[in-house]
Design a protein around this nucleic acid. Structure first.
Length: 873
RNA sequence: GGGGGGUUAGCUCAGCGGUAGAGCUCCUGCUUUACACGCAGGUGGUCGCAGGUUCGAUCCCUGCACCCCCCA
């Protein structure tokens, strides 16, 4: 046993313990294959930069689970890794280049991708270092990246298989297109935002219809691509337009009026709708139904195409301005203010342009159905359960998934075209066209959506589709921990892919946690309220940061983290440190019994062991329910308020030799030691560094707390009797102390205390003489008598004990207000409860236990009122 | 437009059928030989508003107000 330094400096040991654990292989699963295991894969962070506090939160939760399960004896495997994050990472590099005035096309695909790889290596190192500082017990020997060769093979395998199954198809459709990124994106990557804009009404001339037809639109520039007007077949307002032809303003093109009951909403607008098949998904469908041509007037870069005639080359918004001006001049256009929802690119916030282009899609319904079923059947459960409904809503209304991206960073689509135009999809690069034998073949230039590879993460990390030993041993995983914001993006798709390709649900429990907010506000660099995890760790220590995050982990959608709470956690760490210093100095050079079973224990000893047992049970239950906040609070309250505030203060006189026998001293040392070690173990998943550091000094077994057994409370006795007596002692001591306050006496002023044996709880009163020295010491009681208090004493009832108090030097009036207040409160509660008891239907209908409890409470109030009234004057 | 969540002490949040809890803050005392990142004591809440169900509602139901999120 060694001494702890007087001051607590987390920076002095955190990194040391991490390397000890890593060197000793503690992060790798140990134990025989087939023995109970616990497996998680980390949600791979994007290699776009560094981790923020939100990542630290999720990883802290996972590490708590991993360490807890490891200490419970499971073979724990927690797999680390990173995600290439196609569009996001590509943007990071594009921005870097833009600062030097270079566009990615200037550099060329090969050079550009090389550059991203260099960045990726750096970002991965940064992220890895951050997770290590945080203490994450990840198995770094199994670290993966979504573009590793074997994970890329899994992607190609999956693409080819889905294609063969007819679940991947290629076609020309209107997709969400970002003109800044110049790529298609999926529905999920479009962020809709209410925007103040205008609703334009444009009059089209109609052959034979003198009044013309007025259409409403928010995007007048698309009129250049109109190829029809549409009316509802049953709308009398527009029936005179039936079968006629309109003339497209500016362009002069003759376009038909078609009847379409699906597109045209009779309740909205003028009843006439312009149809632009190339620039609106609904209009595209109309075009299919009525065999209309599609004219692309806005190009992939957001500029007008040659089809836009005189507007060709203009930016789409500039074209809008000019077209509005011209139509206004021609007397064809009016506008009014209008709020509508406009789609923006999730990554760069550019307004999305629906754009007709050739893309690859996943036919998703056949995959969604089994994925719905596993959740319905409970094979997979969401924690908290509220997300189940959201999951079902989305899965039951799911749309086909556009998976091709016109990017350079990512998995290239394994589709090959021969000189004769035959398309081959293949897991391996085909040397020549399987159809006609021609060569060379050209691979599709597009890459896949990042989520197409991340959906395979829970099994691709184990080498699937090879049946590797790791895949056999560790798949399916147990728990997935991630933010609810990627429930659709990632979780749902992993479930679909896992079931389809491995035949098994990829995990059994999904814990969806809230998103971190600082002081109730979303983190953002512009608000300057971003907490950098490394800065926080440097200032407060990794353990304090982790404990704060765990404490904040309630089940709501937002997780509020504040610096004040970090400081609170740091204070708790310091408290534990000092408690350990005290304990170690008390045990130093002394005989410390390890086996407490055969010893006679004092009431405080029995009490704290009983509480330790209770807390251990609570913490295990709370962790199994993913209530990290409650588990953290349980340990905090036990260590600080029961072990430190109460037990340590109770046994100080015994330990110091002022009180008690040698045998009692030995017991106290054994109990204190046991409490410290078990507290360290209970707290280790939350505060791994500090607890390991103290454990080392306390046991001399460096680096072994991480694999020490986790206390479950089962080996200790639940001792209600000891709890009852000690809780009474604590209540009495508190009452004595605030009695001093009421009387304006100084805290050192001796108080006389009488406790009557004929108290409302005589059994309890009878057991108190055994702890008389304790009462005297803690309450600074000069005279303690077990008899009815004299008339001159102030009387009260505490914990069903009738007592009298007297302090010599008093400023009698100073606390009298409090007595009046106490009596008034008693009176109020008494009136309320007695009214209840007088209500026959309460006595009749309420559960007997509740009635009995109310009756007893009433008696207590009576006792207390009588005592306080007697003590008045 | 559809769906989900929230509104509890000055602040940040737990609780969710038997008249309210934590941390931080605040106030008053304390060099009580582990700890002032501490010790002891205390202040502070008609649990958003209005109805309903119930013997009883912060908790369940309905409506309203305000806030947040998701989907279209």
């Amino acid at each position: 046993m060694r001494k702890l330094p007087k001051t607590f400096e987390p920076g002095s040991f955190e990194e040391r313990w991490y390397s000890v654990w890593e060197k000793d292989g503690r992060f790798q699963p140990s134990g025989a294959p087939g023995s109970p295991r616990f497996v998680m894969v980390v949600p791979p962070p994007n290699v776009t930069g560094k981790l923020h506090i939100g990542h630290a939160y999720g990883r802290t939760i996972e590490d708590i689970l991993a360490r807890w399960k490891r200490m419970l004896g499971f073979r724990v495997l927690w797999v680390p890794g990173t995600d290439h994050a196609g569009i996001a990472t590509q943007m990071v590099i594009e921005r870097q280049l833009a600062k030097q005035g270079i566009a990615r096309r200037d550099l060329g695909r090969e050079k550009f991708v090389e550059r991203i790889w260099a960045w990726k290596r750096e970002a991965k190192d940064t992220i890895q270092a951050q997770m290590k500082r945080l203490g994450c017990s990840l198995d770094w020997t199994r670290e993966r990246f979504t573009m590793d060769p074997d994970l890329s093979r899994a992607v190609r395998h999956v693409f080819a298989k889905l294609y063969q199954e007819g679940l991947i198809y290629r076609g020309r459709y209107v997709v969400n297109w970002c003109p800044r990124c110049e790529t298609a994106i999926s529905d999920l990557e479009v962020v809709h935002r209410e925007t103040e804009g205008s609703l334009y009404k444009i009059r089209y001339d109609v052959a034979g219809g003198p009044a013309g037809a007025v259409v409403a639109t928010t995007r007048p520039e698309t009129m250049l691509g109109d190829t029809a007007l549409a009316i509802h077949p049953d709308d009398p307002r527009t029936s005179k337009l039936r079968g006629r032809t309109a003339t497209l303003p500016i362009v002069g093109r003759e376009i038909p009026v078609v009847e379409d009951a699906i597109l045209v909403n009779r309740e909205f607008g003028t009843g006439v709708v312009k149809v632009t098949p190339a620039h609106d998904a609904n209009d595209f469908a109309v075009g299919q139904r009525h065999d209309l041509p599609a004219v692309v007037v806005i190009g992939p870069n957001g500029k007008m195409t040659a089809q836009a005639g005189e507007y060709a080359g203009l930016d789409r918004f500039e074209a809008r301005k000019r077209i509005v001006a011209r139509l206004t001049d021609e007397g064809r256009l009016t506008s009014e203010p209008y709020r509508n929802s406009i789609g923006h690119c999730q990554r760069c916030d550019t307004v999305i342009e629906p754009y007709l282009s050739e893309q690859w899609f996943v036919k998703i319904r056949p995959l969604a159905e089994p994925a719905i079923r596993v959740v319905e059947e409970g094979t997979i459960r969401f924690v908290p359960d509220a997300w189940t409904k959201t999951y079902f809503e989305w899965m039951r209304n799911i749309h086909d998934w556009c998976i091709s991206r016109q990017l350079w960073w990512g998995h290239r689509i394994p589709a090959f075209t021969c000189p004769n135009g035959h398309v081959t999809v293949s897991e391996d690069d085909p040397p020549s066209c399987p159809t006609c034998g021609a060569a060379p073949l050209e691979q599709d230039t597009d890459v896949l959506d990042t989520w197409f590879s991340s959906q395979l993460w829970p099994f691709s990390v184990f080498g699937w589709p090879e049946r590797t030993p790791d895949f056999e041993d560790f798949y399916p995983t147990d728990v997935l921990v991630t933010g609810y914001d990627i429930l659709f993006f990632w979780v749902a798709r992993m479930i679909m892919a896992g079931l389809h390709f491995t035949g098994k649900a990829p995990f059994s429990t999904v814990h969806l946690h809230g998103l971190v907010r600082i002081g109730g506000e979303k983190m953002s660099k512009s608000k300057g309220n971003v907490i950098d995890p490394l800065e926080a760790i440097t200032e407060f220590g990794a353990d304090a940061v982790r404990f704060t995050l765990a404490s904040a982990a309630a089940s709501g959608a937002t997780v509020s983290v504040e610096r004040g709470r970090m400081a609170g956690s740091r204070n708790f760490a310091t408290k534990l440190w000092n408690a350990a210093r005290f304990t170690l100095s008390s045990l130093e050079g002394q005989d410390v019994p390890e086996d407490l079973a055969g010893r006679s224990l004092s009431l405080p000893d029995r009490w704290i062991l009983s509480r330790l047992s209770g807390v251990a049970r609570d913490v295990n239950r709370q962790l199994s329910e993913f209530r990290f906040d409650e588990a953290a609070a349980s340990i905090y309250a036990f260590v600080w308020h029961e072990l430190c505030d109460a037990y340590v203060e109770m046994v100080k006189p015994v330990l110091s030799g002022r009180e008690g026998t040698e045998d009692e001293r030995g017991s106290a040392r054994g109990v204190l030691s046991r409490c410290l070690l078990d507290s360290l173990a209970l707290l280790h998943p939350f505060m791994p560094f500090l607890t390991e550091e103290i454990w080392d000094k306390a046991t001399g077994r460096p680096g072994t707390l991480i694999v020490a057994p986790y206390p479950t409370g089962e080996t200790l006795r639940n001792d209600p009797e000891a709890e009852r007596v000690i809780e009474a002692v604590r209540a009495l001591v508190t009452r004595v102390r605030n009695y001093r306050g009421e009387r304006g006496a100084s805290p050192t002023e001796p108080v006389e205390l009488w406790i009557a044996f004929d108290s409302p709880d005589p059994d309890l009163a009878a057991s108190l003489p055994a702890v008389a020295p304790l009462l005297r010491h803690l309450g600074r009681i000069s005279e303690l008598r077990f008899e009815a208090p004299p008339g001159a004493a102030f009387r009260d009832v505490v914990s069903k004990l009738s007592l009298g108090l007297r302090v010599r030097e008093t400023d009698a009036d100073s606390g009298s207000g409090r007595l009046e207040k106490a009596l008034a409160e008693i009176e109020q509660e008494y009136d309320g409860l007695s009214a209840k008891m007088r209500n026959p239907s309460f006595v009749d209908k309420a559960p007997p236990a509740v009635v009995e409890k109310t009756r007893r409470r009433l008696l207590e109030l009576e006792e207390r009122r009588a005592a306080l009234s007697a003590g008045r004057s």
